[in-house]
Design a binder for these strands. Structure first.
Lengths: 354, 354
DNA sequence: TTGTACGCGTTATCAG
DNA sequence: CTGATAACGCGTACAA
């Protein structure tokens, strides 16, 4: 018993393909009896329209694609992405769409895009003018990017990373910290350079340091300059970076560019027997769910991952429907003060006398 | 400038559609010069084959579907599912496939299946003989289920839930606990009854209680019988269930059927100022990543979520390739002893004298 | 109310 | 060896 097609129903019922199709998709256009007869035969033969042929005909797939910069098994280590997916998912469901996760195929993003049978794409951290953008355009696919650089003719959803980074660094400085280590996303020497988000956050950290008058402090030794460590976006990355920090000598505060990094560092510090925030302050960026679960709870920047996903998906749906949409959607981010940051011990001890 | 099709290239180059297609897909079948000319024109016009038409023709979609029992935005609250997706993703990447998340469309699983343009489906907790199974079969889609009931003619990937549940309950009993509250997944009165996994775990808990001679203990009051609370699979569900437990009077141990439930309960207990494991023992089931992050670290059953996803995807790939595969894949689960369980205080106080 | 023909890329089959 | 024709699957504009 092989696949049953619309042709079989047509032959069996004596009507044409068109009539059979109308029986399912536009009942008003055929007679009631005709329809009943066709439906009966279709049921008997177990006919189900082939969605692929149907999609080809309708020129809509009923699915949108999320282009993953990394392999799925790796990408999901970052819970921030889960939040984004949830936001996208909320819109998909409402619109009756499914969500296709597109990893690099044979290590190539372009291959993934080439074969994507989707109505549109959501991408992460896409930079205008890149080969990737050009290829998506060539495929005439509507697309939106999250955490990307503004400037292309496609919508970008994000926060003001620079301002948010300055916010958390200023908080640490206000607590009195001067010996600070930064754990940054990415690596110092990378083919494609830092992403927009990475450089914005770094710039924000520097804004805060500058505003605090650090450069004018003539007495500072080179050791006082914030040291920057690079790590890939995972707890393991944070752990490794913290290893290096421990080797180089502990600062009074660690400012991590993402929560997973901070969590990895905290794990490493706990093993070393260093108390947080007593002996060292740790702050993050993202506010993933785990950050409220660890003890001490992590002070961090709350990023609206869910909202980013939601807005991106909504903008994409508008593009798919050929409607206009904003080119730049900026969402709010705020400092969430919890328990992992405190004044440095030295200040607390000597600063009491003023 | 509209979409460029293979026909445009054929017209522009003077060759037929066939020849153009061969230029891309089977260069050996046409002349070198012919191919060069076609490729040049295709490049000029910015031609990209339409993946949808291509997939229709090839009868393969290059994507597998994950049928979600719940809306995406809800399903992702359970990190256990993220682990499964990671496992599936690892196989997808290796095989050059993407992964389509299919939520219920218009609240209907069947609608989601009807429109799924995929090579095969992975489902969760599917029961043989249900309408869902019948519909997937009608579509002639190969499929596999994770955490489902064995008995249909499709592969099932899971663990021995009953044995694993008995393991953790026995551990709690061995610590000396007799006043136990169980937080179960699902609800007491539900249309479709408990899932296979739910009833297996409950059965496992009861096995352990029985083996421990509880039923023969004539002195036990009704209050000593384990009380069962039902909750939906989220931290909020665990919190709410724990609210009820607090109201009803605290037992010495809470056995939760999943880690998210346990985590929710722990959060509630922390607010109430009840110390874990000093005043109460809490254990879970799943071993999601967060369970190692909370303090105290959660004692639980380690479920190989990633491995489940991986095995399910591998079995599905075999089915898609028309190869044979095992009908039942049982993976290992083990008790992970951490810090959230300890002997009950009364025992610790009085038991010293023996 | 119903049928014909077309769109989309691939490939078995046929013609030169 | 090189290249063309036709069929696959569905929906629908258009014709009858």
């Amino acid at each position: 018993m092989n696949r049953v097609t619309i042709k079989d129903i047509a032959r069996e019922s004596g009507y044409s393909k068109t009539t059979v199709s109308f029986a399912f998709n536009d009942p008003s256009r055929i007679g009631k009896d005709t329809r009943a007869k066709i439906l009966r035969i279709a049921e008997e033969l177990g006919y189900v329209p082939d969605p692929v042929a149907r999609n080809l005909s309708l020129r809509r797939q009923g699915t949108i694609g999320l282009l993953l910069p990394e392999v799925i098994s790796f990408a999901f280590f970052n819970p921030y992405l889960s939040q984004i997916i949830q936001g996208i998912g909320a819109v998909c469901e409402r619109e009756g769409h499914s969500l296709t996760l597109i990893p690099p195929i044979r290590e190539s993003l372009l291959e993934g895009i080439r074969g994507a049978a989707v109505d549109g794409l959501i991408t992460i951290g896409l930079e205008p003018g890149t080969e990737t953008v050009e290829f998506i355009k060539r495929r005439h696919l509507p697309f939106v990017t999250i955490d990307g650089r503004v400037g292309g003719d496609f919508p970008v959803v994000g926060i003001d990373d620079r301002r948010a980074a300055a916010l958390v660094m200023r908080y640490v400085l206000d607590l009195g910290h001067r010996e600070i280590a930064i754990i940054s996303l990415g690596s110092e020497s990378r083919d494609d350079g830092p992403t927009h988000v990475e450089s914005q956050r770094l710039a924000g950290y520097r804004d805060a340091l500058r505003d605090h008058g650090a450069p004018r402090d003539r007495d500072r030794t080179p050791a006082d300059q914030p040291r920057i460590y690079y790590a890939c976006a995972s707890m393991a990355g944070g752990r490794d970076a913290c290893d290096q920090i421990v080797q180089d000598g502990l600062p009074t505060a660690i400012v991590a560019m993402s929560d997973v990094l901070a969590l990895g560092a905290m794990e490493r510090l706990e093993i070393a027997g260093v108390t947080i925030p007593g002996e060292i302050t740790v702050v993050g960026f993202d506010d993933i769910r785990e950050s409220r679960l660890v003890r001490p709870q992590l002070t961090t920047i709350s990023q609206p991952g869910f909202e980013k996903g939601r807005h991106a998906a909504e903008a994409l749906m508008r593009l798919i429907a050929d409607e206009d949409t904003e080119r730049h959607i900026v969402l709010d981010a705020e400092l969430v003060i919890r328990d992992s940051a405190a004044p440095p011990r030295v200040i607390a001890a000597t600063g009491g006398g003023r």
